[in-house]
């Protein structure tokens, strides 16, 4: 299943991804990084296009079926 995956070491927690997500699947966790709810994410890639740090990418995840 393709889901948004965030590299929390690169993430700048700007919140553009949360704002753009059409499913409200992303939140900024305690001002530190973007946290993707993989149960809600449909892997559309809108966040990836918006992310200025290139930290959020859509890729195949093993756990999401």
């Amino acid at each position: 299943m393709r889901k948004a995956v965030n590299d929390i070491n690169r993430c700048v927690a700007c919140g553009v991804c949360c704002k753009e997500c059409p499913r409200q699947a992303i939140e900024i966790y305690k001002g530190c990084y973007a946290l993707v709810d993989t149960g809600v994410c449909v892997g559309c890639g809108i966040c990836e296009k918006a992310c200025p740090a290139g930290s959020i990418t859509v890729s195949d995840t093993e756990e999401g079926r």
């Binding site: 700048v12 700007c14 553009v16 918006a50 200025p52």
Partner: peptide, 8 residues
Amino acid sequence: YKERTWCS
């Protein structure tokens, strides 16, 4: 670059 590159 991206719209909000400044934020990074």
